[in-house]
Simulated assay, not measured.
Amino acid sequence: MNCESGLSLLGRLSVRPSLNHLFGESVPPPQFPVTPVFYSGVLGDSSVPESFFMEMICNACLPILYRGVQINGCESTVLLFNCDHHIKSDVLGGELQRRVKNISENHFRSLPKEERKTKRLTSSDQWKIVKKSLERVLIMEAYSPNTLEVGLISLKNMLNGNLNISLVLISGINAFYHQVSLCTGLYHNAYLRRLLSILTDSIQNMNENLKILYYQLNFFNKTDNFYNFSNPRDKLYGIKEKITLSKPNPAGVYTVTYNNTHLEFRTI
């Protein structure tokens, strides 16, 4: 009989922050724990997936409120496995600053003139929001297949140790496939199954607010039938949804398709 540790029990029962504002105010977060993200662009073009993950990080880590001002974040800690190294912390910090500045300016314009001096968000307030939000972003840089696998195996302990983590992002989950294939001869589907099996084992019995999104590189430029799971006993059967990112238009706007919903975001 397996015995559950006190830390594991706490991680399972504790309520993590809700991600209700992850996609905006009107669209709920993914229903299932693990959701793959696909991009229809060419291999090597990372601007859209990078922008989408940056969007998710900002929406998750920003506060819900600050001094009575609606920021509309989720106030959640984000854990990023950065496998393709396209997401940079300095760019993320700049994007958070831009968003908070826009919120501050809109709030300032909405105030009566006599209240602007006392109720506006000062530059100091804005920096505090950005600084606290960045503290809720944990980045694990993976430079080898072993680093990624060890990180996924350790995920359960990381989640149990930080009950504020509601969002886990994996940028380029199959980024090390060619390296592994050269050494082992492993086929892509088998390699991806191994990683996802480790992932699903690590998040068993976690609170329902925990969501994992991973971006998968399209190495073979064809429709992937890997997710056509039909056996409920399959360990990966719970991966039932997907998010698809379109190519950006000339203005840099791309479409996110999820659960029959279409959202538009701009590349960062």
Rank of each mutant, 00 (worst) to 15 (best):
P33F: 04
R16T: 09
L22S: 03
E55N: 14
T77G: 02
P33V: 03
S14M: 11
C74G: 02
N20A: 14
V69I: 04
I57T: 02
N102F: 09
L65W: 12
Q70D: 14
H86G: 12
V15A: 11
P28K: 09
E75A: 14
N20R: 10
I71L: 13
E105W: 08
M54Q: 15
C58V: 13
Q70A: 10
V91E: 15
V48L: 05
E25A: 12
V34Q: 08
R67A: 09
V78Q: 05
P29W: 04
D45V: 11
I71K: 00
P112M: 08
L19M: 06
V27L: 08
I57D: 05
S46Y: 14
Q70T: 03
R16G: 03
V37S: 10
P17T: 00
E95C: 07
V42H: 13
C83I: 01
V100Q: 00
S14V: 15
I87F: 08
L92V: 08
L62A: 04
V78H: 10
Q31Y: 11
P63A: 07
S40I: 15
K113G: 12
H86A: 06
R12Y: 09
R16W: 05
S14G: 00
L92F: 07
L79A: 04
S18L: 07
H85I: 03
C74E: 02
L111R: 04
S40T: 11
V78Y: 10
D90L: 09
P29I: 03
N106Q: 13
S47T: 08
L43V: 07
C74K: 00
H85T: 02
P30T: 08
Y66I: 03
C74I: 00
E55L: 09
L80S: 03
F108K: 08
E55R: 09
L22C: 03
P36F: 05
V42E: 12
I71E: 05
R109D: 15
V78M: 07
L80E: 05
H21Y: 11
S76K: 00
P49W: 04
G41K: 02
N106L: 14
H85V: 04
P63R: 03
V37M: 09
F52C: 06
F53K: 00
S76W: 06
S104R: 01
F52P: 03
F108R: 11
N59Y: 04
N82Y: 04
D90M: 08
